[in-house]
Write a protein that binds this DNA or RNA. Structure first.
Lengths: 340, 340
DNA sequence: CCTGGCACTCCAGTGACGCGAGTGCCAGTT
DNA sequence: AACTGGCACTCGCGTCACTGGAGTGCCAGG
């Protein structure tokens, strides 16, 4: 084992011990608890080097060392091995997610499950509209010139709008419009629907076009609304449990969590294809309120086609191997459920 | 002023000072800050009496007094006067709620608004399904024997289910079923729909009944699912801000908040007609995790017809007059919006 | 390049102590 | 009977000095 290798082993030991004990770890304890094969004095030298390189830091002189964000980053990238889930945990995932009845249910169960598995705050983003495709468009006459326009996506999401067309269109006309809209839109990405539908009114008799245009407007509206920007949280109580891990108050973290925009931006910036787990640590989150937290997230959906993201958030001092394993397993399972 | 009246005035002064300062309040400070017209010694006697009656307590000997739950209860019931909202606050309510586009939007804006106005945790319950009426039922053929069953309520809520009927029913049959369902269900309370629809399949030709029965099953399912039991929270960060007010950790409170069932039970047990504001203080919440919190809530909807509830939750040491005023104003305004 | 030894630093915990806010009680006054 | 001023007492809290121990950096020797 080269000295460089040993230094990294020391770093790994520091991260593991610190995550476990919450207390700065010193050279002596390290030599005792880990079979590094060298004396505390040597470890001290290694630690001094690691500190120079910015992987660890001292809270104050004559205290043990604590990993820095950079140290955690190194740990995650090169030093940790994935910790497979226990049988019980796998069973819990199946048990809980298998009998979800609809999309809302899947999302809600997933977020609770993640929070419970990792004992962190869990985040699940609703499947994005813009990436999904149209499964069906339906028009429903309500009463007195009002129509209900329903848009159903392949992810099971349903958007609806009531539109006032001023007159009661005939059943035949509705059928006509419905057929043409479906012919033009079915199977297309939502982002392309707008263009695909633009020409539809012109294919109708001139007197029927106003109705078709109103319907189209409502559809556009359904597409535009950024419902995809919805996320669901669970396990915020876990923050308080780990509250002492935060230098400042946990209220800044809670505030950041309520600003869903922040989380969405963060998730969208992480390059996490379905099945790939990404990690942001401390300052990497680029948000003041989250400077002491880390995010572990993954995309879900089909490979190469991420419909949304999910993950967990906790103190930088968190158990990365376990969190990563849980996020990966849950993301995969949710992907499978949505695909069926 | 009788001595009894003065004692209550002392209690009021204690509550007000304590809410303001967070510190046990003593007889001397009380005599200085409030024009009670008597000496500290007299106030001390009054305080001793109030303590005997259980309205106030001492954290420890030789400390000032702190209101008990019973003391707050007396304050809320008999000693406080409603504090009208400022012009700016009223304007904020109008500004924020007036251009809400749909039910989701109203609920989300409301909960944020309440949290901001009161600086507490805000809770808004979604309008209950069971109290609303059916506006429309729609059947949409999807593909390969699958139907989408859509239920639209007068509160703007839409429930949908996909049902597998095994065959592709003719458009004529669908129209027939659709018409009969709507005739039987439109305008009825959701709670009565089940009974009203039970006979519908029997009015059809025998070979068509299986399809109708499947549809009915899906509808029943839409009714049963307790989506009405959804609540939305905001302002949890305010809890942390007031964190030191909690003897124990705030995590127990956060846990209670995540158990939405607890909140729903609490809200439903409070007798709060639309426009009436109810208060639960400390142990009155009958939940261990909330023993140090108080809930101020009101129903909303039309008078005598509460469709759901909203309110705020904070430490028992909270500014009741302000919270009550805010909850009342917001509940009224939301009621008006939903009525239109 | 590793190791044991050594001097140094500094936090955290402890106990002593005085201050001040607050109380309860009592005797005197209105 | 109710209020008041006075007084002795209690007790939490902040300060301070002290100490033990864990941890470090450095150095000389293997």
């Amino acid at each position: 084992m080269s000295t460089e290798d040993r230094r990294l082993a020391v770093l790994r030991a520091i991260v593991e011990d610190y995550v476990h004990s919450r207390e700065p770890v010193g050279s002596k304890a390290l030599a005792e608890r880990h079979a590094l094969g060298v004396s505390p004095a040597t470890i001290r030298n290694d630690m001094a080097a690691l500190e120079d390189e910015g992987y660890i830091a001292q809270p104050h002189t004559s205290a043990g060392r604590v990993p820095t964000d950079k140290g955690y980053r190194m740990f995650v990238d090169r030093l940790s091995t994935v910790k497979p889930l226990s049988m019980a945990e796998r069973r819990a995932i199946h048990l809980l997610l298998d009998d979800a009845v609809d999309l809302d249910d899947v999302v809600n169960r997933t977020v609770r499950l993640l929070a419970q598995l990792t004992r962190q705050v869990a985040v699940v983003q609703y499947p994005s509209l813009t990436r999904s495709t149209v499964r069906h468009v339906e028009l429903v006459p309500l009463s007195a010139g009002r129509l209900l326009v329903v848009l159903i996506t392949n992810t099971g999401r349903v958007e609806q709008r009531v539109v006032d067309v001023g007159e009661d269109p005939s059943e035949a006309l509705l059928g006509e419009i419905r057929a043409r809209l479906n012919a033009a839109a079915c199977g297309r990405r939502l982002s392309q629907v707008s263009a695909a539908l633009a020409g539809v009114p012109e294919t109708l008799a001139p007197e029927d076009r106003p109705v078709a245009r109103s319907v189209l407007e409502a559809l556009e509206d359904s597409l535009k609304i950024d419902r995809e920007e919805r996320i669901v949280l669970a396990g915020t109580a876990n923050l308080a449990r780990a509250g002492i891990d935060f230098q400042g108050s946990i209220s800044t973290v809670l505030e950041a969590l309520e600003e869903q925009v922040v989380l969405l931006k963060l998730l969208s910036e992480m390059s996490i294809d379905a099945g790939i787990v990404g990690v942001r640590i401390g300052h990497e989150t680029a948000h003041a309120g989250l400077s002491e937290t880390a995010v572990v997230a993954s995309g879900y959906g089909s490979p190469g086609e991420v419909v949304a993201r999910l993950g967990v958030l906790g103190p930088t001092r968190m158990d990365y191997p376990t969190s990563i394993a849980a996020v990966r397993a849950v993301a995969r399972y949710v992907s499978r459920i949505l695909a069926s």
